[in-house]
């Protein structure tokens, strides 16, 4: 089976740091930053670069729709 590798982009100024994406991620890819955005929220980011499979669970469940997901099929 081909291995999937994904990546997420968080609109960090619109993220409200609710962490719903963090618990929805099957591979614990997402963590919250220590710094805050302009609204004062600790926003989500992709902590583990290699673990994301691009399942989009985080984006699907994000109440603010701030996550964009990309995915590639690795050839090996």
């Amino acid at each position: 089976m081909a291995k999937m590798k994904g990546a997420i982009v968080v609109d960090l100024e619109k993220c409200k740091g609710c962490e719903v994406c963090r618990v929805a991620c099957p591979n614990d890819v997402i963590a919250m930053t220590n710094e805050v955005n302009h609204k004062g929220y600790h926003y989500a980011y992709q902590e583990h670069q290699d673990a994301c499979v691009g399942c989009a669970n985080c984006a699907v469940v994000c109440p603010d729709g701030v996550i964009t997901v990309y995915k590639v099929k690795l050839s090996d």
């Binding site: 701030v66 996550i67 990309y70």
Partner: peptide
Amino acid sequence: DIIKPENLVYQK
């Protein structure tokens, strides 16, 4: 290299 339009899976 993953974050490219052709690899887009989900966006608002």
